[in-house]
Each structure stands twice: as C-alpha cells, then as structure tokens.
C-alpha cells in the first residue's frame, strides 16, 4: 500500500513538473536553401567579401554619413553622386563593386528622407537623350518642370578595396586582411569632407570560388 501511495505521489509530481515548463517547441525550423544575408553561411564560407560583409559595410557607412553635419545636417540638402565610377577594387577578392555602391546609395536615399539628394550621373546619357528629344520637338515637354541644365553635384563618393594575403603553402590556409575605404570629395574645392574605413581579416582554406 505504501509503494502504491509513493508511486502515485511521484507520478503526480512528475506530471505537475512537466506542466510547469513553458511548453515552447524549442526545435530548429524546416530546412531551406535560403539563408540570412546578414550572417555568414554555415555551409559555404571563405576568405573573400561575402554578403554579410557587403551588408555590414554599407550599413555602417550609411549611418556614419547621416550623422555627418556637412552631409546630412545642412538646410539645403547637398547633391551627391554615389556610384562605382571612382570606386576601385585593388584587392585579391573577386567582387562586383556595384553591389557595394548600389546598396549604399539605395539604403542612404531611403534613410536620408530628403537630407541628401542623389544624382544619377551613371544615367546622364539617357537623360540627355530624352532632353534632346523634348527640345527638338520630337516629344512633348512631359508633365514635370523643364530646366536649363541637369543638376550639378556637390560631392562624389570615391574609394577602394584593398587586401593583403598570407598563405601557408603547406596547409593552403589563407589569411586575408581586407580594407574598404570610402571618401566623399567636394566637387568644387577638391577637399575630402567625409571618410570611412571598414576592415576585416578572415582565415580559412582558400577552396571557395567566388563568381
């Protein structure tokens, strides 16, 4: 009788203790090929510039620029050119530079909300061709204002990607130190009004191919 009573109490306690837990199904989610671009891949990771680096560097530079009074604190918003024309890749990493400059420009434009104006100098040929059609009377003037000239820029982003590699020939381990520098140039006076630097070092087997 004593054993039965003990068993009953133990069972009740065990069930009660189970009820006291949060009951959250704390298990991993369903497997998928999609990954978070903001975090390094647990499956494929090398020493080159990867998605998380592009997101991190553009996020950092964007926030830094918006906290600069010359760039984002003026009563009349400065006109800025951000493209890859003067942004060079001198590193041993294969990377499409436009991924950095495009993300930086777009994130900056979305966050700036009029504090900075962006000029699409990359597309000036397209704009000039349309303006010529309008002025030659081939097309009408459109529905927005016409101006004597297109917008002149106050500042332009320049920069470069550089790297220093160290390779252990016996193990094929590669250590790559990467620097991505950004500078904003005053297009009238030639001075540097803002600069930012992003650097990182990765060490791994250099067996990942970047395309």
């Amino acid at each position: 009788m004593k054993e039965v009573r003990g068993l009953a109490i133990c069972s009740a306690l065990a069930l009660l203790s189970a009820c006291a837990s949060t009951g959250v199904n704390n298990s991993a989610g369903r497997a998928t090929v999609y990954e978070d671009v903001r975090t390094s891949s647990p499956i494929v990771q090398g020493v080159g510039i990867e998605s998380q680096d592009i997101v991190a560097v553009t996020d950092r530079m964007m926030r830094d620029m918006l906290s600069n009074q010359l760039l984002a604190g003026r009563t009349s918003a400065p006109r800025v050119i951000i493209d890859s024309q003067y942004f060079t890749n001198e590193s041993s990493s294969r990377i499409n530079k436009n991924m950095i400059t495009d993300r930086l420009r777009i994130e900056l434009q979305r966050a700036a909300q009029g504090r900075m104006l962006f000029i699409g100098r990359e597309y000036s040929g397209m704009v000039e061709a349309e303006r010529a059609l309008k002025r030659d009377g081939v097309t009408d003037a459109g529905t927005i204002r016409s101006t004597r000239g297109t917008a002149g820029a106050d500042y332009r982003l320049v920069g470069r990607i550089t790297s220093a590699d160290a390779v252990d020939s016996s193990t094929a381990l590669t250590s790559r130190y990467q620097q991505i520098s950004f500078e904003m140039i005053d297009l009238e006076y030639g001075t540097v009004v803002w600069s930012g630097l992003y650097e990182f070092k990765k060490t791994a087997q250099d067996d990942i191919i970047y395309r």
Binding site: R38, A56, R60, M62, S67, A111, F200
Partner: peptide, 24 residues
C-alpha cells in the same frame, strides 16, 4: 526601420571594448 547590421567586436582577455551604433 530595421535593426542595424550585426557589428563585430573583438574583446581581448579581461579587457573592455566599446560598441557604438548610430541611428538613421
């Protein structure tokens, strides 16, 4: 907006380091 991107910080043994982030 979205949270800022993860920013890596290196801490030497028993040392301090500062984390800073700017709003947009």
């Amino acid at each position: 907006g979205a949270p800022s991107q993860w920013q890596r910080l290196y801490l030497d043994p028993q040392s301090i380091n500062g984390y800073r982030e700017l709003s947009t």
